[in-house]
Design a protein around this nucleic acid. Structure first.
Length: 636
RNA sequence: GGGCGCGUAGUCUAGCCUGGAUAAGGCGCCAGCCUUCGAAGUUGGAGGUCUCAGGUUCGAAUCCUGACGCGCCCGCCA
């Protein structure tokens, strides 16, 4: 149940209806609540109940007859309830109509009272969340699939903040991988001069070049392994080359994120982890557990393994031993991930020092882990989210399972893999090694999108300044890309097609932005007339009321998305597309209202009321776009 | 071998968790609407064996079982 301090007009209306129905049908509130639905067409009613079907079983009566009986009692009850004007039955369905005027008044009053915080709630206040995304290797630019990850992570963060969580956004930088060693090897032969190229693109191309030599020469492989060893020693020449290279690459990748409105609070660097002592602390913790040990014989002799067979789900595995540390003492990926996850929950004392990595355009610094610098204070987290492709479902599950084996049951349960499908081309995935990302980097897509948007802006605003056109083109382009990524259900693979990603018509961000621009134009052209009193009881026509209802549902919609997150076998579900769908629906209803209900030319009392509705719409749409990270436009 | 996801008009998708009234949108196609707040809009139309077969139910796109098709995952790798 929603707390009273949060404005949630739709839920309030629903609760009132549920209460009356429960009384009329002489049954529990829960039973009624579960039977409530929205009728397929609003001419049938604003809410409906299928309670008669449920009761038919126990009462052994015809559902339609039950519905009529309930209706008779309901008729009396609604006289005392100002929010409900009419109830009727259609066969077994009990249909409820809100009192349009009263409902409009409470909704609009809620919105104007809450303003920019309309839609936020305190439901999850006091809980802290750490979320990691998008963890791109610092050896290439983001391709458009990385953008999907980052946009999902950022929007999820926004939603969680809206429902009361404190969210810390973390980026993971793997500066010790094979990719980095390969690039350092290459950079010792070629100039580190990127020329006009953005540094991450420069590296990305170099990386593709390296692959062929690497695959075809054992000599090169040997040399790269040598570099790899040197990287462990922070004082080595190779480590210095690497440090500078990675710094420049991450900085370049950040620029891409900034264009999309994506910012972080912290970066955790692998090189810092390697020298922090975290790994040996984690190993010591692991080895103390009953189900984690070192086999003395067999093919895994000398490794530190977790015995998964004690977990029901894995008891039938052919080989239930999951290796965390190899027989040579080095960690596997799973081992490292477990250590990192322990650190994220504060189960390992934070050994890091922190330094400012960059000052972000949102005015906040992003800090990185280092070995010098000031101490940080990340604090404890209740929930840890990792935004990672769905292909990593199994490895992620391993990490959480090991946590459970170690006795950290609560932390294991509160570890979530936010899974999503990849973005690819028809018949092929993006690959850093093969360079299939070329032409599909996030920068390329944003550039092309901005270029196309500029053409559109030019046509519509030929007399505006170049600065204005550039700004709007950018807002439209960024919005279009973010919406495109969010509007696809995360469990569905996206086959990237330019004409689809860059379509500015229909079900796309510019439609939402446009509706907002139109609303603002109306409000801008209004001279405030304080002579006339606001009478919200005027808003009773279909287009007006449909818009009111959509506005009233916004807080519930945001909460629903947060509540619907659920741990599944393949990861934790996150319905990003529900928020875009809401925004699209809201824009549609505004467009219909706009078309059929003149505001400025209406007679004074109606005009005043409609202006209040337009203003409520503007507030709601603005808040919704902010969650989606879609730029707010004034004109376009 | 085991597991996961997906299958809905020409096309791209939403709905499936939590069963309910005529299966909802975008793009494309056809026909309208700018002397009235911005046409990136709006009104109407054509277009469907919801992959298939069983089952549960008063009721199934939705839940269960089994097929089929497509994609992915199951290393002391990274």
């Amino acid at each position: 149940m929603t707390k009273a301090i949060d404005d949630n007009p739709w839920d309030s209306g629903k609760q009132a209806v549920v209460k009356m129905l429960a009384e009329a049908a002489d049954t529990t509130v829960e039973t009624v609540y579960d039977s409530i639905e929205v009728p397929p067409d609003s001419v049938m009613g604003d809410l409906a109940s299928t309670l008669a079907f449920t009761l038919a079983k126990e009462l052994k009566k015809n559902p339609a007859a039950i519905a009529s009986e309930v209706l008779a009692k309901l008729q009396k009850l609604i006289e005392k309830e100002s929010l409900v004007s009419k109830v009727e039955t259609k066969g077994p369905y009990i249909n409820i109509f809100f009192d349009r005027a009263a409902f409009a008044k409470t909704t609009i009053t809620s919105v104007s009272k809450s303003g920019s915080s309309y839609g936020t709630s305190s439901q999850f206040k006091g809980k802290r969340v750490l979320i990691e995304f998008p963890a791109v290797n610092p050896s290439k630019p983001w391709h458009i699939g990385h953008a999907r990850n980052a946009i999902l992570g950022d929007t999820l963060s926004n939603i969680l903040e809206n429902v009361g969580y404190e969210v810390v956004r973390l980026e993971y930088i793997n500066d010790l991988g094979l990719q980095i060693a390969q690039l350092v090897w290459k950079l010792k032969q070629v100039s580190d001069d990127a020329g006009d190229q953005k540094y991450d693109h420069f590296l990305g191309h170099l990386y593709v070049e390296v692959q062929e030599t690497f695959d075809n020469s054992e000599e090169v492989q040997k040399e790269v392994r040598e570099v790899s060893r040197h990287l462990e020693d922070l004082q080595s020449e190779d480590a210095k080359i690497s440090g500078e290279m990675v710094r420049k690459c991450v900085l370049a990748q950040c620029q891409t994120g900034y264009r999309l409105g994506i910012f972080h609070n912290y970066q955790v660097w692998e090189s810092a982890i390697a020298h922090s002592g975290i790994l040996s602390l984690a190993r010591d913790m692991m080895i103390k557990c009953d189900n984690i040990f070192i086999p003395e014989e067999g093919d895994k002799a000398g490794c530190i393994v977790a015995d998964l067979s004690v977990i029901d789900e894995f008891k039938d595995l052919k080989d239930p031993y999951k290796i965390l540390f190899r027989s040579d003492g080095t960690r596997t990926y799973t081992g490292a991930d477990v250590a990192l996850q322990l650190w994220k929950f504060g189960l390992i004392k934070d050994p890091f020092k922190y330094a400012v990595f960059d000052s972000q355009p949102n005015g906040e610094d992003v800090k990185r882990t280092t070995l010098q610098g000031g101490r940080g204070d990340l604090g404890k987290f209740d929930i840890v989210l990792n935004v990672i492709g769905t292909r990593q479902a199994h490895p992620q599950k391993m990490v959480y399972t090991v946590l459970d084996l170690m006795g950290f049951t609560k932390e294991s349960e509160n570890s979530h893999h936010i899974a999503y499908e990849f973005v690819g081309l028809e018949g092929q995935d993006f690959s850093g090694r093969q360079g299939t990302w070329v032409g599909y980097s996030t920068d390329d897509v944003l550039n092309k999108s901005t270029e196309m948007a500029l053409t559109e802006v030019n046509q519509r605003n030929p007399d505006e300044s170049d600065e204005f056109k550039a700004m709007v083109a950018n807002q439209v382009a960024v919005g279009a890309i973010r919406y495109f990524m969010l509007n696809a259900s995360p469990d569905r693979k996206i086959t990237f097609r330019w004409e689809q990603a860059l379509d500015f018509n229909g079900d796309a961000a510019p439609y939402l932005q446009y509706s907002l621009a139109r609303a603002k134009r109306i409000l801008e052209k209004t001279e405030r007339d304080n002579e006339v009193e606001v009478d919200l009881y005027q808003l009773t026509s279909d287009p007006e009321f449909e818009l009111v209802k959509a506005i009233s549902k916004y807080p519930e919609e945001v909460l629903d998305v947060a509540r619907a997150m659920k741990k599944e076998v393949w990861g934790t579900s996150f319905f990003s597309n529900r928020i875009t769908a809401y925004g699209y629906g809201l824009a549609t209803l505004f467009s219909k209202f706009y078309d059929s209900c003149p505001v400025l030319k209406a007679e004074p009392r109606v005009k005043k009321a409609r202006l209040a509705l337009v203003e409520s719409f503007m507030i709601t749409m603005t808040n919704c776009l902010q969650i989606l990270g879609i730029p707010i436009v004034d004109r376009m």
